[in-house]
């Protein structure tokens, strides 16, 4: 893998819901193999940005993934290109079993052997899921569901993983575990764009961060510098 040019490049992205402009000219980039976070308060436009990236919402601006424009491509093609979203609120198939959920993540793949290998690998990474493979996903705890959502996304063999608020609604213990998983996924070489309200945690796994406020990116820096920045400390770290 060469690090020539960013894997994801966003320039002047605008997204509107009807008349309300939620994202007003956002630009950022993610380099190959990097973990980058997008932090900000509720309603800053973080999730909207991700939805625009994955073509779930119409948008204006330039979106380049792997050097190609994304704007003309339908959402279902992105997964084949290696870009997978873990949606906000987990979005597991509640009435399907854990194993069925994982298989659904490999929907676009035809290599049966590879799928089995990957499933075992994911069970190795997330042993809780293996214990509950035949259980219906809706019976899992919130944290386990988040793990399952990440596992399902990994089944598509992503090069770029987009995580939308993985800590949302989870107990602090569980949040730690989920972030451990994110760290080990990143360690395996998957590029990650992490959207989070929990700025401290997000900056602890990411190398760089962007701060988003009312639809604009107001600040960007390396993660340690952002953690030390007084404005960030005041606004997002509660100090």
């Amino acid at each position: 893998m060469s690090a020539a040019g960013p894997i994801l490049e966003v320039r002047d992205l605008h997204v509107a819901y009807g008349g309300i402009v939620a994202v007003k000219g956002v630009s950022f980039e993610v380099a190959n193999g990097e973990t980058v976070c997008l932090i900000g308060a509720n309603g800053a436009g973080k999730t909207t940005t991700l939805k625009a990236l994955t073509r779930l919402l119409p948008a204006r601006g330039t979106l380049h993934y792997d050097g190609q424009s994304l704007l003309q491509r339908p959402p279902h093609e992105l997964i084949g290109a290696g870009m997978t979203l873990v949606p906000e609120g987990r979005g597991v198939f509640a009435r399907l079993t854990v194993a069925e959920n994982l298989n659904m993540g490999a929907y676009c793949r035809r290599d049966k052997v590879g799928i089995t290998v990957d499933r075992e690998r994911i069970f190795g990474l997330l042993p809780r899921l293996k214990e509950r493979a035949k259980q219906v996903a809706g019976t899992l705890s919130g944290g386990e569901q988040q793990m399952l959502a990440i596992g399902r996304a990994l089944m598509s063999r992503p090069r770029l993983l987009l995580l939308d608020e993985p800590s949302m609604g989870l107990a602090p213990m569980m949040v730690q575990k989920v972030f451990e998983v994110i760290r080990s996924v990143a360690a395996q070489g998957v590029t990650i764009l992490l959207v989070e309200q929990n700025a401290r945690l997000a900056l602890s796994v990411a190398a760089r961060g962007y701060v988003m406020e009312s639809g604009r990116i107001t600040l960007t820096d390396a993660a340690p510098a952002l953690l030390a920045n007084p404005k960030v400390r005041e606004a997002y770290l509660g100090e």
């Binding site: 994955t54 779930l56 339908p74 959402p75 279902h76 093609e77 992105l78 997964i79 084949g80 997978t84 979203l85 873990v86 949606p87 979005g91 597991v92 198939f93 509640a94 009435r95 399907l96 298989n103 659904m104 993540g105 929907y107 676009c108 399902r152 996304a153 598509s156």
Partner: peptide
């Protein structure tokens, strides 16, 4: 079939189905 699985996915959660790469349309 694969189509049958895609139908189940859409029935259960359309956004999740899309993020699994299913051409929901």
């Amino acid at each position: 079939s694969r189509i049958g699985r895609a139908w189940v996915a859409i029935r259960e959660d359309e956004v999740a189905a899309k993020s699994c790469g299913i051409n929901t349309r």
